Lab assay of single mutants.
Amino acid sequence: NITNLCPFDEVFNATRFASVYAWNRKRISNCVADYSVLYNFAPFFAFKCYGVSPTKLNDLCFTNVYADSFVIRGNEVSQIAPGQTGNIADYNYKLPDDFTGCVIAWNSNKLDSKVGGNYNYLYRLFRKSNLKPFERDISTEIYQAGNKPCNGVAGFNCYFPLRSYGFRPTYGVGHQPYRVVVLSFELLHAPATVCGPKKST
């Protein structure tokens, strides 16, 4: 009989979020998941679920829940969905086509923008091939755009693969920082350890 609540607040209220190319993952297990707390949290810009209804989450049990978190621009949030393409979905964070879970995003301009620009948040701009679902690539190898080998030196046709967002408070909404948490639900042939409040007695 599990009684402790799942530590969703640790994920959602973290002081610093990860850059999207180096997205953070927390495994959540052996706890009671009260999703209504999240669902009623006012400032969400997006709360979209795939393969599961957000209002039914509290009735369900899962083997594991993974909480992935990172920061992207407002106009990139739409790429955090199954079957998407674009710089983020291709080179930074890719969801599987059969994704079961929820994508939760909110504007973090007050936290993550600075006058003069916040350059701490990076994304991958160049990559030889697209990421596989949930693949994480933190390499900083110089990207070779031409035929000539770069030998690890940036220059003509040789690019550092990461780019900084440089968030400023005055940017338009599409270019403002958004914090994103992706909850993915794993249902294995194993005992369920993460259940909603109704199922955990």
Rank of each mutant, 00 (worst) to 15 (best):
Y50K: 02
Q176I: 02
R16S: 14
R124F: 00
L38S: 04
P96Q: 05
N109W: 06
P177K: 02
G172V: 00
R127P: 00
N120S: 14
S29H: 14
T3V: 10
D59T: 13
V37H: 11
R163I: 15
D98C: 07
N147W: 06
L183M: 09
G74L: 02
L57A: 07
A192F: 13
Y171E: 00
V37P: 08
R27S: 10
Y121Q: 10
F99C: 00
L162A: 02
R73Q: 15
R73G: 13
T63S: 13
V77A: 05
I2Q: 14
W106V: 09
A154W: 06
F167W: 05
F134I: 05
P54Q: 12
P149E: 12
L125E: 01
I138Y: 09
S69I: 03
N64D: 11
Q79W: 01
I104Y: 13
I28D: 01
F185A: 04
P133K: 05
S139T: 14
V20F: 02
N24T: 14
P197A: 15
T140H: 10
A89G: 05
Y121W: 05
S113D: 00
P43Q: 09
V115N: 11
R168T: 04
R179A: 00
G152R: 10
E186D: 14
Y21G: 02
K114Y: 11
V182R: 03
P82S: 03
D112Q: 02
S19W: 03
G101I: 02
F41K: 13
C31G: 06
F8Q: 04
C31T: 07
K48Q: 10
K114H: 11
F185L: 08
P96S: 07
R27K: 15
I138H: 10
N13G: 09
R163M: 15
V20H: 00
N109S: 05
I104S: 04
A46S: 15
L131T: 04
N64K: 11
N130K: 15
F41S: 12
V37M: 14
N157D: 04
V52M: 09
D98R: 11
A33H: 08
N64A: 15
T63A: 13
V103E: 00
L122V: 12
R136D: 02
N109I: 06
P161S: 05
Y91S: 07
Q79C: 04
D34T: 08
K48P: 00
F156G: 05
A18Y: 08
P149W: 08
F126Y: 02
Y143Q: 03
D97Y: 09
L60Q: 12
A154T: 15
S19I: 01
G101Q: 01
H175M: 00
Q176G: 02
Y171Q: 00
R136Y: 06
T55R: 13
G174T: 08
T193R: 12
C102I: 07
T85H: 15
H175W: 12
F44W: 11
L125T: 07
G101H: 00
N30K: 07
E135L: 05
N1W: 07
I142R: 02
W106I: 09
Y39Q: 15
K148M: 11
A33T: 09
P82I: 05
F160D: 12
L95S: 01
R179Q: 00
I2H: 14
P197H: 15
N87M: 15
S108Y: 02
A18S: 12
G116N: 11
T100W: 08
L162F: 06
E135D: 09
L95K: 02
G116F: 06
G51P: 02
P7D: 14
G172H: 00
A18E: 10
V173L: 15
V153I: 12
Y171R: 00
F167T: 00
D59Y: 10
A190D: 14
K56I: 09
D137Q: 03
R179D: 00
R136I: 08
C6R: 05
C195G: 11
P161D: 01
N40P: 09
S113H: 01
F44E: 13
F160L: 12
T170N: 04
F126I: 04
N24F: 05
P169A: 06
Y93A: 01
T201V: 15
D98P: 10
R168C: 01
Y91I: 06
H175L: 00
I2C: 11
G146F: 03
R127G: 07
N30V: 05
C195T: 12
Y91Q: 05
S19A: 06
S78F: 08
